[in-house]
Amino acid sequence: MGRRRSFSDIGYSFVIGGLALLALVIIVTPVVVVLAMSFGEGQSLKFPPTGFTFRWYAELFDASQSRQIHRAVGNSLEVAALSTLFGVLLGALGALGLSRSRSKAARLGESLFMSPLVLPGIAFGLAALMYFTFIGLRPSLGLIVAGHMIVTVPFILRTTGASLSQLDPALNDSSQSLGAAWLYTLRRVTLPLIAPGIAAGAFLAFMSSIDNVPVSLFLSTARTDMLPIRMWGMMESSLDVRIAAISGVLIAAAFVLMLLMEWTVGLTRRMRD
């Protein structure tokens, strides 16, 4: 462009660039700071930490010193795996059903299934606790699985729905006009094409279950302790630098899993669509 850059345009680059940089700093700093803390020798949360030690990680992985944390991690993993499994079964079928219907009921159903994303989780957590108590069910991991399934299934619906909307309907029609049965078409044509979408949604649902606070807060007990609730307890009661070590492990795990999902199903691309 032959136009000379005016003062206002330079100001624009300055302001927008500056704010964008600030956003990046705000996003990245806490992650780096926690990683640094987890290797620090100090007992306090002083920054920058002094010294370098693996002590907190050693304590964290020691079965006798961190038994409660290990149990909470086990519970969280079990609940996340089961709620994702049920979520994928119900959610993928649901997305298929919704994508093929243009009725008002289908649109209403879609808003209902997506509503856990904006509804206050804490209100649903309390409602679930009251409901299970009233119908006489005792607290168990199974109930937490049910609660987590409801609040994480929107992720599966969204990514599966997005892949379905990019599916060429002609594929379906030609498969059927060539004599393939409905189930055969689903299994051999539709499912392979939407599998990456389902996988991306399942990954997001799994991570969001691991991270869930509002439902676990109300449905977990001392016996069915969940990792975020245990960490919250550790933060509220005493200063325990093992939290930094747990955070370090979670950061590493999230990083590796995300790279894996990025290479296999293009996770970030699916999240922006």
């Binding site: 996003i27 806490p30 306090s44 920058p48 975020p228 933060m235 747990i246």
Partner: peptide, 29 residues
């Protein structure tokens, strides 16, 4: 950049909250 943006989303809210205690604390960053 998208990877950097999505990364915190997959980190536990409790971890992110803990991180901010370290950043904003009396002797924090």
């Amino acid at each position: 950049l998208l990877f950097v943006i999505v990364m915190p989303l997959l980190l536990s809210v409790v971890v992110r909250t803990f991180a901010w205690i370290v950043v904003l604390g009396h002797e924090g960053l």
